[in-house]
C-alpha cells in the first residue's frame, strides 16, 4: 500500500543524502521523493511516497526518526491531506489532431504553455491519480518529452482522522 510520509528536517548540508541513503541501505521501496523549504528557511519538508506494508512503514518511520536532522514525521495516509504533483509534457501534434488535443486539455483543466505547428506543451497539477490518468490519455498521442514531480502534501487544517504515531 502507498503511504505518504511528510518528514520535517533541518535544512542543511547532506540531509537529503542521509534520507535517501537510508532507503537504499535498508532496501525500502520508494515511489517518489520531493524536497523543498518551508516557511522557515532553516527547515525543509521531504515528502516521501513509499510502497510498503504498514509494519514496514512503521519501521521506516522509526529509522527516519533516528536521523539527527529529522525533526518530525507525519504519515499523511492516516490523515486527510491535499496531495499534489505537477506534470509537464510536450505532445506531437499536426493540424488535424490539434483540435482534439485542445479538447482534452480543456477536459482536464490543464494549461497550454507553448505551441508550435508540430508540438504542444501542456502543464497540469493535480493529485497523483489524476496525473496518472492524464498521462495515460495523452500517451494515445506521441509524447515527445515529459517531466513529473514527486508528490508534495499537507494535512488539511480541518482533518479529523487521528495520527496514531507521535
Amino acid at each position: 500500500m502507498k503511504h505518504t510520509l511528510s518528514v520535517l528536517v533541518k535544512n542543511h548540508y547532506g540531509v537529503l543524502s542521509h534520507v535517501s541513503g537510508l532507503f537504499t541501505r535498508r532496501g525500502y521501496n520508494i515511489d517518489s521523493l520531493s524536497v523543498g523549504e518551508t516557511d522557515n528557511p532553516e527547515e525543509s519538508i521531504i515528502t516521501l511516497v513509499v510502497d510498503e506494508e504498514p509494519h514496514m512503514v512503521l519501521q521506516i518511520e522509526k529509522q527516519l526518526y533516528k536521523l539527527v536532522d529529522v525533526i518530525s514525521i507525519e504519515d499523511l495516509t492516516k490523515k486527510e491531506s491535499l496531495q499534489r504533483e505537477l506534470v509537464i509534457l510536450t505532445v506531437k501534434t499536426s493540424k488535424d489532431k490539434r483540435h482534439e488535443i485542445l479538447g482534452l486539455v480543456d477536459v482536464f483543466k490543464a494549461t497550454i504553455v507553448d505551441m508550435t505547428d508540430s508540438a504542444i506543451m501542456i502543464e497540469m497539477s493535480s493529485n497523483p491519480r489524476r496525473i496518472d490518468t492524464f498521462i495515460r490519455v495523452f500517451s494515445e498521442y506521441t509524447i515527445l518529452k515529459m517531466a513529473r514531480t514527486g508528490t508534495i502534501a499537507l494535512e488539511f487544517p480541518s482533518s479529523k482522522l487521528e495520527n496514531t504515531k507521535k
Binding site: 548540508y13 547532506g14 543524502s17 542521509h18 541513503g21 541501505r25 533516528k66 539527527v68
Partner: peptide, 16 residues
C-alpha cells in the same frame, strides 16, 4: 569522507 560515512555513523558533519 562525509558521504562515505553516512551509513556507518549516527552523527557526521563536515565543518566549514
Amino acid at each position: 569522507t562525509y558521504g562515505m560515512t553516512i551509513p556507518i555513523t549516527k552523527y557526521n558533519a563536515l565543518l566549514k
